[in-house]
Design a protein around this nucleic acid. Structure first.
Length: 223
DNA sequence: GCGACAG
DNA sequence: ATCTTGTCGC
C-alpha cells in the first residue's frame, strides 16, 4: 500500500499528519533477505534555501557502490525537532526518482519509530516509498537506554513510554554508539544486523558515510 | 514551570 | 546541518 498525501505547510499541520500516518507503519521481518542497501543524506548552507540530496546504493556482500543519484532543490520548511522529514524528504524523493536500481533497504540519517509520535524520517519515507526503511541517527531524539558494552556489536534497547523503539548500537570499539530504529517494513534485529554489516571501520555505517560525502561533493561543486 | 530537542 | 586547527587520548 503506497501512501500518498498532500504536503503540510505548517508545523501544526505536519504534526496532525504524523498522528494519522503512524497507524500505517508496519514493523516486521523483511519479506526476503536484503542484497542491496541504500544510504541517503542532504547537505545545505546554514541560512540558504538550496538543498543537495543524494542516495548511494551498495551491495551488502562487498559494500561496493553500484548506483548513485542526486538532486538539487529548495526547501522552505524549517528544521523543527520531530518534523525533520518534512524538510528533507521532498529533496530525497527527487533523487530517488533518478535511481536506476531499486535497493532492498533504505537507511536514513535520523530515526524511524524512535520518535515522539513514532514517525521519524525513516518511517515517513518508508510509507511514501513503500519500501523497507531504517533509521540510523548520531544522537537521540527521544528515549532512554543503558550504555551498551564497549565492544563493537553490543547494543542496548532504547525505551520510550514503555516501548522498545530502537537500539543504541556500538559500531566500533570504545566509540559512542549510533541509534538504530526500524522505519517501516523491517524489524529492529534485522536493522541492527544490517548496520553491522555496513562496517567500513568507522562509527558511521558506510551507507550514511557515502551519501554524506556525495552530497557534500555536489554542494561544493555548485559554489 | 523547566529542560530536552534527529539534521 | 555548517563554519574550521589544533589537540587530547588510545
Amino acid at each position: 500500500m503506497n501512501i500518498i498525501h498532500p504536503w503540510p505547510d505548517s508545523p501544526e499541520a505536519a504534526v496532525t499528519l504524523q498522528q494519522q500516518l503512524r497507524n500505517q507503519i508496519r514493523i516486521q521481518p523483511l519479506d526476503r533477505p536484503a542484497e542491496t542497501i541504500a544510504g541517503c543524506d542532504i547537505s545545505f548552507n546554514k541560512f540558504e534555501e538550496t538543498v543537495y540530496a543524494g542516495i548511494v546504493v551498495l551491495r551488502l556482500d562487498t559494500l561496493e557502490t553500484i548506483a548513485e543519484a542526486t538532486a538539487i532543490t529548495t526547501t522552505s520548511f524549517p528544521y523543527v525537532p520531530g518534523l525533520l522529514s518534512f524538510r528533507e524528504i521532498p529533496a530525497l524523493l527527487e533523487a530517488w526518482a533518478k535511481l536506476t536500481i531499486l535497493p532492498d533497504v533504505v537507511v536514513f540519517d535520523g530515526h524511524g519509530i524512535a520518535h515522539p509520535r513514532r514517525l521519524g524520517i525513516a518511517s515517513h519515507a518508508g510509507l511514501l516509498l513503500d519500501r523497507p526503511t531504517l533509521g540510523c541517527g548520531k544522537s537521540v531524539l527521544v528515549g532512554r537506554y543503558e550504555e551498551p558494552a564497549l565492544e563493537r556489536g553490543s547494543w542496548s534497547p532504547m525505551m520510550h513510554r514503555g516501548e522498545v523503539i530502537g537500539a543504541a548500537l556500538r559500531t566500533k570499539n570504545k566509540v559512542n554508539p549510533v541509534y538504530v530504529s526500524p522505519g517501516h517494513l523491517i524489524d529492529l534485529q534485522t536493522g541492527i544486523d544490517l548496520m553491522l554489516r555496513c562496517d567500513g571501520g568507522y562509527r558511521i555505517p558506510e551507507t550514511t558515510r557515502r551519501a554524506h560525502n556525495l552530497v557534500n561533493d555536489v554542494r561544493r561543486a555548485n559554489l
